[in-house]
Design a protein around this nucleic acid. Structure first.
Lengths: 235, 235
DNA sequence: ACCTCCGTGCCATGACACGGCACGGCGTGC
DNA sequence: GCACGCCGTGCCGTGTCATGGCACGGAGGT
């Protein structure tokens, strides 16, 4: 179904560069203008894009947002109050992430008030083995570990060492990150467990310069309790 | 491009009922199993859905979320801090909505702590003529008013009366809603103006029972200032 | 007046979507 | 044990419709 692939590529390109017209899209995608034009008309009929600004420019509608929101099945709604309490107690940025394939995806965040802060776009994907959220999730999965790319000099790239780390995470109830993805970012995270394993995870992220060992332990306990509360709420 | 339409319908149905299999989808959509099967494989290739839970069940990925987020061009990121301050000052639920066609769409919200609260799902569409956010936006547009369906006994259904109301809104700098969409919901809202007109709006929503005339005026001033701040931030 | 780039529409060709059907696997009822 | 129903999957002949090159009219720019 090549045309579906094309249409979806067009949709993504519109989202990335809106408002945009037929010609520029065709050039960016390397497709004939006619093909792009037909895709645009079809996407419009289906309600995914709309003319915007000038008549011949296109933008995506809120259809994608509604669809994305339906997929979370109330996870976000249940999580936000817990996240707010966690931010109040820590004063730091709180992230809610869900596992997807070989990564964790940022679904929601509450930022710290402090001027120096971590800001990741929603939808950001982080590696399982080099993020606090990823390790919190991994500790509750039984997955073969291979291909562990390094990002900084503290990234754990040896599967045996990672196994040991994950055992410690499971024991402790929360995972931490010591600059393993970006050297100046530290975090602690705990998995939210459903009946069939981890469904998401919560984390407290700070600049490495603010994360002392005492804070790490304190935030660890807080995030562990918050994740447990949320797990019970979800049933 | 019937197959694109079909594939997008399949995608929406998967989002609505995930995790779900081929047969049930085909029945729900009234399409042949083969057609649905092909659409699923294609959507999977394109990275929009993934097998989930059982091997033959499907879920949507975070692709839709990333796409939806890119469409807001940082509006949400700029708005959330302003919304937080607004909630702190009012103690009530704050909504961020954007105009789309003949409706306003809920993009982001911060809820009140109070037990009695308004909860609308993200992506909710409200009518332009019967919501505070809609009227705030309409007051800055020059649109022909027709077809004004009534929702409650306070809904303004007469175009002439609505014209007068919108003039008052433009004068005052904020719009209000006196149970015009749901009789037990009240709100005040102000438009966020870009170079080419309203791009979004902010509102404070409360149960009708809490919204006195004094509060309405106070919240109106606050939301008007917050919207102006945000408009300047966005340039 | 000329040129370029825009968005749009037409059309012959042939690729491929359609959908009926069959198959193997699994759980259930008899 | 056997028959049945439903599951997901894969095959294939038919004919629909996506393809993409091309032409047209309009808007700017030079």
């Amino acid at each position: 179904m090549q045309n579906v692939i094309n249409a979806l590529r067009v949709l993504e390109e519109v989202a990335a560069r809106q408002p945009i017209g037929v010609g520029e899209l065709a050039r960016a995608l390397g497709l004939p203008k006619s093909t792009v034009q037909r895709s645009l008309v079809t996407l419009h009929e289906a309600g995914w894009i709309r003319p915007g600004g000038e008549v011949t420019r296109w933008q995506v509608t809120s259809k994608a947002l509604r669809l994305a929101r339906r997929t979370e099945l109330g996870l976000r709604d249940a999580a936000v109050p817990v996240m707010e309490e966690l931010r109040q107690r820590t004063g730091e940025t709180i992230h809610l992430m869900v596992p997807e394939g070989d990564a964790v995806v940022l679904i929601e965040r509450l930022e710290t008030d402090k001027p120096l802060r971590i800001v990741l776009p929603l939808g950001t994907r982080l590696p399982l083995h080099a993020s606090a959220n990823g390790k919190a999730v991994l500790a509750h999965l039984d997955r073969t570990l291979a291909e562990l790319p390094g990002y900084t000099d503290t990234t754990i790239t040896d599967p045996r060492l990672l196994r040991a780390e994950l055992a410690a995470v499971a024991e402790r109830g929360y995972a931490d990150n010591r600059g393993e993805w970006r050297s100046d970012i530290a975090a602690v995270a705990a998995a939210i467990l459903g009946p069939a394993g981890p469904v998401a995870s919560l984390s407290v992220s700070t600049p490495a310069s603010r994360m002392t060992e005492e804070l790490r332990a304190e935030y660890g306990k807080l995030v562990r309790r918050a994740a447990a509360t949320l797990g019970e709420t979800l049933g």
